[in-house]
Design a protein around this nucleic acid. Structure first.
Lengths: 187, 187
DNA sequence: CAACGGTTATCTATCAGTTGGTAGGTGGGT
DNA sequence: ACCCACCTACCAACTGATAGATAACCGTTG
C-alpha cells in the first residue's frame, strides 16, 4: 500500500504539463504514459480514473501555487513589492513551454469537468484571490471591497497570460502587466 | 452549387454555441448534427472537414464581433462611452448560457488548433485591439504605445469573463469591470 | 542458506464507446 | 432527367477502462 512515489510524482508532473498545454480534455493516458516511460494501464495503479488524476493534478497545482505565494511573502517584506512580483507566477508558465495556467485552462473547460476537478479549480482561484486580498490590504490598509479589487487583479493577470500565450510572445505579457502597473491596478 | 443557406447558417450558429461551451476539441459532429436536426454526415456537404468548420465558425465570430463594435461606435458618439460599453460584448456571452468568448477558448486550445483556425482566432484578437486602440486614441488623443494599452484592456476584460464564468456568476464580471473603471484602466 | 509466499509495481491483451471521415444511395424540386 | 440536399451504413483511429499475467523484491521459515 506504499506505492512508488517516484512514479506517482512523475505521472503528476507529466499530467500537469500536458494539461497546461492541451487541457483536461486533451489529456490522455497513452501519451501521458509514453511521456513518463510506462504503459497506460500502469497509471490506473496510482489513479483509479481520469477524474481522480485530474483532481489530483489540480489539487497539487494550487498547493504548489500556494507555496510559491507564501515564498514571495517570506522573501519580500514590502507588500507592494509582493504584489508587483505576483505576475511572476504566471510568467513562469509562459517561460516553461508557453504553457497556460492550469486554473485558466480548466476554467474554460469547466462545463466538461468532473465535479471533483471543478472543486480544485475553484480552490485555485480562491487561494489566489485570498493572497491578493491580504497583500493589497497590507499595502493600503483594510478598505471596502478589497476582495473585489483582488478578483480584478487576478482576472487581469490571467487574461494577460492568455493573450501573451496566444501570440506566443512573452513580451506581450510584460507589456500588459506594465500597463496594469502604470494605470494603478497593481497597488 | 447553391447550398441551402438555412442549414449552413444553422450549423454555423450551433457550432459556435457548442465551441463557446466545450471548445474546438469538445465540438463533435454527432451532437452538432442532433442540435441542428440533421445527420452528422450532412455537415460534410457544407464543410469538408472539422478544421474547415472550425475556421468558418471562428471567422464568422470575429466578423460578428467586428459588426457589434462598429455598431457601438455608430450608436455612441462619445468615445469614452464607447469604451465603457466595450465589456457589453463579453457580458452578452455570459448572459447567453454562461458561454466563453470563442477567442478565449480557442486561444487556450491553440496548441491543438489547425493552422487555419488559429489564424482566425488571431484575427479576432487583432480586431478587438485595433478597435480599442482607435477608441482610446479618440479619448486621450494619439499617445505613445496606445496599442499596448489597448491590449491590456482586451486582456483584462477577457480575464474578467473567464473568472466570472468559472464562478457562473455574472455579478463577478460586473464587479471586476467596475474595478477596472475605478482604477482608470477604462479611459 | 535456500526455498517459499506474499506484496508491489508493472505489463499484455482486450473491450466498448466515441470520433472524424467516406462511399454510395434516395427523394423531391425544376 | 438531373442535381441539390440529405440520408444510411460503415470504417479506422483513438479513448478510458478492465482482467489477468508477470517479474522483482523481501521478510519468514525449514
Amino acid at each position: 500500500m506504499t506505492m512508488n512515489t517516484g512514479s506517482r510524482e512523475a505521472i503528476l508532473a507529466a499530467a500537469r504539463r500536458s494539461a497546461q498545454t492541451h487541457g483536461y480534455n486533451g489529456l490522455n493516458f497513452r501519451d501521458l504514459a509514453t511521456e513518463v516511460g510506462i504503459k497506460a494501464a500502469s497509471i490506473y495503479y496510482y489513479f483509479p480514473s481520469k477524474a481522480d488524476l485530474g483532481a489530483a493534478v489540480a489539487r497539487r497545482y494550487w498547493e504548489d501555487t500556494s507555496a510559491e505565494l507564501e515564498a514571495i511573502r517570506t522573501d519580500t517584506p514590502d507588500p507592494l513589492m509582493c504584489l508587483l512580483r505576483y505576475p511572476e507566477i504566471f510568467r513562469r508558465s509562459l517561460e516553461n513551454g508557453n504553457r497556460l495556467c492550469l486554473g485558466s485552462f480548466m476554467s474554460a473547460e469547466q462545463h466538461d469537468l468532473p465535479e471533483t476537478v471543478k472543486h480544485e479549480v475553484q480552490t485555485f482561484a480562491d487561494i489566489n484571490v485570498a493572497w491578493l486580498d491580504t497583500v493589497i490590504s497590507a499595502i493600503n490598509g483594510v478598505f471596502p471591497n478589497s476582495t473585489g479589487r483582488a478578483r480584478a487583479i487576478f482576472a487581469a493577470v490571467s487574461g494577460a497570460q492568455l493573450l501573451a500565450r496566444s501570440r506566443s510572445d512573452i513580451t506581450v505579457f510584460d507589456e500588459v502587466i506594465e500597463n496594469y502597473r502604470e494605470v494603478g491596478l497593481l497597488k
